[in-house]
């Protein structure tokens, strides 16, 4: 058996850190496939990409392209990103109120953390009142984090419903929750064994 634990360490197909979880950067990569609206500053004919056909880009008409493409163009100052409706002070304030007054998680896009981060990183000048948006996101995060910690009390060996939890939050609680459920599973299994 000792030998087998040795093998686990020898296996290098996937680095240790990636074996039980995904990284925030990988989540960002996935989220960047989603489409955003942009106002292009260059024109481009309709072009076929692996993920689909985008364009034509004709300033100043809006167009929808994947977030990674928008980030790329934005960094070269070739477009402005139109932030999604939910990335605004009004919307986030409303969600924060819900978050602090209700027990359930408020309903936000599944990958809102990643998308908000990417847009605020490269295109904060396109987001109205970006500082306020940032601080609201931070408050939301804290309010929701407290709730997911409370959720741990309800954990049993069989199922835990986590409606409206988003990708990044799941990833954050994953190691602890998975392990905790594993321990609970072992505890119930014991009496029936042998």
């Amino acid at each position: 058996m000792i030998f087998y634990t040795c093998i686990a360490d020898l296996v290098m197909a996937l680095p240790q850190s990636l074996r039980s979880s995904v990284t925030p950067l990988e989540l960002e990569l996935i989220a960047s496939e989603q489409l955003v609206e942009i106002v292009p500053l260059i024109s481009m004919e309709k072009t076929a990409f692996i993920s689909g056909a985008y364009g034509p880009l004709r300033p100043p008409n809006k167009s929808r392209i994947p977030l990674w493409m928008a980030t790329n163009l934005k960094q070269k100052k070739k477009c402005q990103i139109v932030p999604p409706d939910w990335l605004s002070v009004d919307f986030l304030q409303d969600r924060l109120n819900q978050e602090t007054s209700q027990q359930e998680f408020s309903n936000l896009p599944f990958r809102f953390t990643e998308i908000a981060k990417v847009i605020l990183d490269v295109a904060s000048d396109d987001v109205e009142n970006a500082d306020k948006v940032r601080s609201l996101l931070k408050d939301l995060r804290e309010a929701r984090q407290a709730k997911s910690r409370d959720g741990l009390q309800k954990l049993d060996h069989s199922e835990l419903t986590l409606s409206n939890l988003c990708a990044m939050e799941i990833n954050e609680i994953r190691p602890f929750f998975v392990q905790a459920m594993g321990v609970l599973t072992q505890l119930v299994r014991e009496p029936t064994a042998e």
């Binding site: 489409l35 955003v36 309709k46 076929a48 994947p66």
Partner: peptide
């Protein structure tokens, strides 16, 4: 012949080439 499709993309608007349109945001 994907490279041809990519090159000729501007004239593809007549719709006989099956280029998939991008899906909606959510």
């Amino acid at each position: 012949n994907f490279q041809n499709r990519l090159r000729n993309a501007p004239v593809d608007d007549d719709g006989d080439v099956p280029i998939r349109d991008a899906p909606l945001f959510f």
